[in-house]
Nucleic acid binder design. Structure first.
Lengths: 216, 216
DNA sequence: CCGGCGCTCCACCCACGGGTGGAGGCGGGG
DNA sequence: CCCCGCCTCCACCCGTGGGTGGAGCGCCGG
């Protein structure tokens, strides 16, 4: 798909040199067009409102309104515009906050021109492009993988199944229907699994399920 | 960092042609060494035990033991060996299962040689490399982003607080005690927040809380 | 100034959920 | 072979949870 229309970009960073450097660099690449710069989060939001670009290249640490806040507002008010975060170094909380706010790309500032180019193209195309290190940390939060699941594998297969259905919000009657057994049987399984995992009601069971990887 | 020791690889795929093709392709790349092939999950596990490679390139659909199961066992018994999943096309459930099982990379089979090479190098180096489409879906599960997050900020502060306590497994009486209000008040808050977020009981409310970032 | 919203509280209802104590069938391992 | 664990089912009890339809108070903003 040869794009006739260029990818329109807004650069948001509080450091002048970085902004200009990126502007110059991206301007040289065929198919890219930098339509505005912003020195803080507020400016970024108004720049997006004014130009509705395809992508914003966003620094996180900025005065007035930080990158996370700006990302939030842009994603909420201009969903057509994607956000790629570009930051020096980052603690996990900031990374997660940015992704949660709707950033679709995440690059560290030691990324080279080709990385930035690829990230911008992909994100503009509706895909995602995360820094490999960030990907790793993301993966580490998804699966509690192994852990104190000792109580968990004390459960029988049937009990785990019931636990999952409880997490899906089903009532005992609905679970019974789903499993083609009587409600009595479901109650038995539930009582057994509750004592095994050490909870007293469904609500606690659901929390257990999420914290131990049964649910996600 | 010029690596003197090559990245040692095991290829697991049930189709002969794919195995041999990959073997040939990877053998030509400097710094790569294919140490074994496996035609099913069992073979993959034993091959890893025998050669303790740096990375396994793993197909998901395989006889005897599927890729997810094999990944699980490899990650559990040989944590030094990383797994890159390489599959034709994938439903979300399989992707998630594979990542949960400990896969650090995920490529679709339309990936070219350079993509595969980069993924193997990164994963062997302790990073992660996911197909951009997979990254996107991952992001979509992390942040409730938009959706019924609108319902979430329809909640009052008090209601959110009650929701959190429900997630902590407290009964109405305990919540009342914690907040220094009567149980009636708690019930009122609960009824209000249930209708707002569209659930019918605590179990569903807990699931909502986890899926929308109120709990973690 | 007054309306609305958020928080507080009440009484009443009853269904569903959870606890107890049983029982039978079926499969695998000691 | 026999026992144990898993799955299945039953009757009975009663507490908690969830639904309804009120009500009063304080605060903010139109």
């Amino acid at each position: 798909m040869p794009d006739d229309s260029p990818i329109r970009i807004v650069i948001a960073d509080d450091q002048r040199m970085i902004r200009d450097g990126l502007d110059l660099m991206l301007g040289l690449i065929d198919g890219f067009e930098v339509v505005a710069q912003a020195a803080d989060g507020e400016e970024a939001v108004t720049a997006v409102a004014a130009h509705s670009p395809d992508v914003v290249l966003m620094d996180l640490r900025m005065p007035v309104l930080d990158g996370v806040g700006a990302t939030e507002r842009i994603r909420r008010d201009h969903p057509r515009t994607q956000v790629v975060v570009l930051t020096t170094f980052s603690d996990d909380a900031e990374v997660l906050a940015a992704l949660r706010a709707g950033a679709r790309g995440y690059l560290t500032k030691d990324a080279g021109a080709p990385e930035i180019e690829r990230a911008l193209r992909r994100v503009a195309g509706g895909e995602a492009e995360l820094d490999p290190g960030v990907q790793k940390r993301l993966l580490e939060m998804i699966p509690p993988a192994s852990g104190r699941a000792e109580a968990l594998d004390a459960l029988t297969e049937r009990e785990r199944e019931v636990l999952r259905l409880i997490g899906d919000g089903l009532s005992n009657a609905e679970i019974a229907a789903r499993l083609y057994v009587s409600e009595s049987t479901v109650k038995t399984h539930i009582n057994n699994l509750f004592t095994k995992i050490g909870v007293r009601d469904r609500a606690q069971a659901v929390t257990f399920a999420f914290r131990n990887g049964v649910m996600s």
